[in-house]
Write a protein that binds this DNA or RNA. Structure first.
Ligand SMILES: [Zn+2]
Length: 298
DNA sequence: CGTCTTTGACCCGCGC
DNA sequence: GCGCGGGTCAAAGACG
């Protein structure tokens, strides 16, 4: 609960329609645990997304908010099993949220070279001190209400780790883009009180179109709103030497509509990402635009 | 046979 | 200096 959500350097904010200030309030040093609690709490109360919500967001030109929600997905679907809720081919996903923080650091994303130095005793060796500030990439957190993990966002991910979250339940999965030369990482976590809520945190940006869904004909895959959010939510920062192209709208090439033909993609471009400056955790982010409207219960 | 998941060990920054 | 907690690697297994 230290630097997971509220970090002074990296900021990743989960938004909702409730007391987000607790989370965003980075200046508060008293409630560290509260932070996590608030986080969970926030998720816990999360299932009250309403149509007006999106409108509100749309009306607010402040922070970025990507919200996608599926109308046909009633909040009544509450599952208690961590994973027993495998509902293939029916991943309704309503998601809200987001936020991200950008950083200007373009080199050491830290390409580990431990494979080269196989000393003998220690396997993992990384005496490279060249790295000053690791992990300076933009994070893009985003909540999704879905029963299933592994929301297809148009990219292929390889799971490289899984750890349990401390303050709350359910393990957190770490994924990485399988495409070579792409160090985009993804982190998927579930809520404690609401297993139906999945928090996905993207890190980095792809530099290639989606490897999957090549032909015009392809079904079965349910592209969740995640991809739209991910695609749009990413504030195109500096363009690396890669052949970056208008993938920003990568959702177009994807022929969704098979499974998720009824998703409302509501996103909002952020006007400015906050700077992780040590100075100040400016308030008035999403909290400002996210009052506590539409109260719904399951 | 290739790909991706599983899973324990390990690294590393930080607080005590 | 040690323990904690989050993040990562890599070997082995599962899956097609
Ligand atoms: Zn990628």
């Amino acid at each position: 609960m230290e630097d997971v959500l509220g970090n002074s350097s990296c900021s990743q904010y989960m938004v909702n329609n409730l007391p987000l200030q607790s989370i965003f309030d980075l200046s508060s040093s008293e409630d560290e645990k509260i932070r996590s609690l608030g986080f969970m709490d926030l998720l816990g109360v999360q299932d009250l997304i309403g149509p007006p919500f999106l409108e509100i967001i749309a009306a607010q030109p402040s922070p970025s908010l990507i919200s996608t929600q599926v109308p046909p997905a009633p909040p009544s679907m509450k599952i208690e099993s961590p994973e027993a809720i495998n509902q293939p081919a029916t991943p309704n996903s309503s998601s809200i949220s987001s936020a991200s923080s950008e950083a200007f650091n373009d080199e050491p994303v830290k390409v580990d070279d431990r494979e080269e130095n196989q000393q003998k005793t220690k396997k993992q060796l990384k005496p490279k001190k060249t790295n000053q500030k690791r992990q300076r990439e933009p994070r893009f957190a985003f909540m999704t209400k879905s029963e299933v993990d592994h929301l297809e966002d148009g990219y292929r991910w390889r799971k490289y780790g899984q750890k349990a979250v401390k303050n709350s339940s359910f393990p957190r999965s770490y994924y990485r883009c399988t495409t070579a030369s792409c160090n985009v990482k993804k982190r998927v976590e579930r809520s404690f009180n609401d297993p139906s809520i999945v928090v996905t945190t993207y890190e980095g940006q792809h530099s290639h179109p989606s490897p999957i869904m090549p032909g015009p004909n392809l079904g079965g895959s349910h592209l969740s709103s995640a991809m739209s959010a991910a695609a749009i939510g990413m504030p195109m920062q500096r363009t690396p030497p890669h052949h970056q192209q208008p993938f920003t709208n990568s959702l177009s090439p994807l022929n969704f509509g098979h499974n998720i033909g009824s998703i409302n993609n509501n996103f909002l471009q952020e006007r400015g990402i906050f700077n992780p400056g040590p100075a100040g955790p400016s308030h008035g982010l999403l909290q400002d635009i996210l009052p506590s409207y539409m109260l719904k219960e399951e």
